[in-house]
């Protein structure tokens, strides 16, 4: 409970000068102390609690088969383990064993194990790329030059007043809780990069400020996937896709629901509106061997999207 005292586990060695407190009257007192210790850090605590105790509670609720079926929906049975995995509160090996312990048939758990694989993949890439993951891995395939993208986040985005109920809701959730469903991350990232033409790095840094699971590798490389510097095609969505996987939650009270929704179009129309002609796309891809051809190959109109348990903005996915 929020009013319960918070006590760090006892230390068998004496405190040294300059060490930070480990006992608090309650969670509010913790928040106040942290505000004093870290005055530059904006906001307050997330409703999501840190610690292995909470991670174990979530782990006990794992349902790999339900996850496989419903993970793309904003209200679907995603695990919410990502912050704990990102900071090693749980190791991937521990989560793998927890999934195995709940596995009756391999097929039912393959999706969740595959998601853990994505986390491992991004981490291996981080080892390989180092800080270079902030650089475009490939040319953009949008027909726009990198210089055409704004470096700063516009105020209406920072203040969650874009006028789009879906995006404003996602921004408020990001700022308030530090967690977003993977699908919401993808939509928000695509909106920023493609509809607002903001550099992916700017968006990625903004996510890292807020996401409890903010991992440089998963986050930056997934933004690159959306932007198309780490994929063979930019990721976009349309209203039909968003409405389906959000159960129309935001659209029901969006002032633009009946007229003016920028996502209300076919993919063909949106591509024509958002991107400049780029006749060399195919040649580029063939030459490079399509780093994530497996993902882009999956991105046909009939694919399904993936909500992630494990990563910041988890590996991007097919758009429908």
């Amino acid at each position: 409970m929020a009013s319960d005292p918070i006590a760090g586990v006892p230390l068998p060695w004496p405190d040294q000068p300059g060490e930070l407190p480990r006992h608090f009257r309650n969670r509010q007192a913790l928040a106040q102390t942290l505000e004093q210790l870290f005055p530059e850090a904006a906001g307050s605590l997330s409703p999501v609690r840190g610690g292995r105790h909470q991670a174990d509670t979530l782990l006990a609720r794992l349902q790999p088969e339900r996850y496989a079926k419903g993970r793309n929906f904003l209200d679907g049975p995603v695990t919410r383990l990502s912050p704990y995995i990102r900071h090693g509160v749980l190791t991937l090996a521990e989560v793998r064993e927890a999934v195995f312990a709940r596995t009756r048939s391999r097929q039912g758990s393959e999706k969740l194990i595959n998601e853990l694989g994505w986390r491992d993949y991004w981490q291996r890439l981080w080892q390989q790329l180092g800080d270079g993951l902030w650089r475009d891995q490939e040319e953009l395939k949008t027909g726009h030059s990198a210089a055409a993208y704004a470096r700063e986040l516009p105020a209406d985005i920072l203040e969650a007043r874009t006028g789009l109920a879906c995006m404003d809701g996602f921004i408020e959730e990001l700022h308030g809780t530090g967690w977003l469903h993977n699908h919401a991350r993808m939509w928000l990232a695509a909106y920023l990069v493609h509809w607002r033409r903001i550099r992916w790095q700017t968006g990625a840094q903004w996510f890292l400020q807020h996401l409890l699971d903010g991992d440089p590798a998963s986050n930056a490389l997934s933004w690159q996937w959306v932007a198309s510097s780490f994929s063979h095609k930019p990721y976009i969505f349309n209203r039909g896709n968003l409405e389906r996987y959000s159960n129309g939650r935001a659209c029901r009270h969006c002032p633009l629901a009946t007229e003016g929704c920028p996502f209300e179009a076919s993919y063909e129309q949106l591509e024509a509106d958002l991107f400049a002609p780029m006749p060399t796309i195919r040649a580029t891809d063939n030459r490079r061997g399509g780093r994530d051809a497996s993902r882009s190959g999956n991105r046909g109109r009939s694919g399904t999207t993936q909500g992630s348990s494990t990563t910041a903005l988890s590996r991007p996915t097919p758009r429908r």
Binding site: G8, G43, R52
Partner: peptide, 24 residues
């Protein structure tokens, strides 16, 4: 851009469950 207090708080709560002294 500084990281938000949410992230620091999350780390802090994780750390309180471990036998570890905290410094900055």
């Amino acid at each position: 851009e500084p990281v938000s207090l949410k992230r620091i708080g999350f780390l802090y709560e994780c750390l309180l469950e471990l036998p570890v002294s905290l410094r900055r």
